[in-house]
């Protein structure tokens, strides 16, 4: 408990001294302001805008792989005991998921521009 308190104190002192050094070395207090990169022009519209719907399709396809990885972790622990049958079953499962990816590709989920 005491060790934790000392650690917290040290961290706070470190953060504070970094800030103090920054203030001491700064020439002025006001920060330099930055604009979005626009080749010497200023923005005409706010950058707050909708994401392209294609990002959602790509993220759903990513989820297919993500969930399959979740399933593969426990499978990897027991696959040596279960033998060939488990390997075949896993590849059948993967093939089903890949069929979904092939379908998404046919629907144009990866067609970007």
């Amino acid at each position: 408990m005491i060790a934790l308190a000392v650690l917290a104190l040290l961290l706070a002192a470190g953060a504070f001294s970094l800030r103090a050094v920054g203030t001491a070395l700064a020439e002025t207090r006001s920060p330099v302001l930055v604009l979005p990169v626009a080749s010497g022009r200023v923005p005409e519209q706010h950058a707050l805008s909708r994401y392209h719907v294609r990002w959602y399709a790509a993220s759903v396809v990513f989820l297919a792989f993500d969930v399959e990885m979740l399933f593969m972790y426990p499978w990897a622990v027991v696959v040596a005991d279960l033998g060939t049958g488990a390997v075949v079953e896993m590849f059948v499962f993967l093939a089903i998921l890949l069929a979904a990816v092939a379908w998404a590709r046919r629907e144009g989920a990866f067609r970007w521009a």
Partner: peptide
């Protein structure tokens, strides 16, 4: 699908 039509300049100084 409805999308934002954002005007973004490339150039003159790039």
């Amino acid at each position: 699908l409805e999308m934002d039509a954002l005007r973004h300049p490339l150039g003159p100084l790039l």
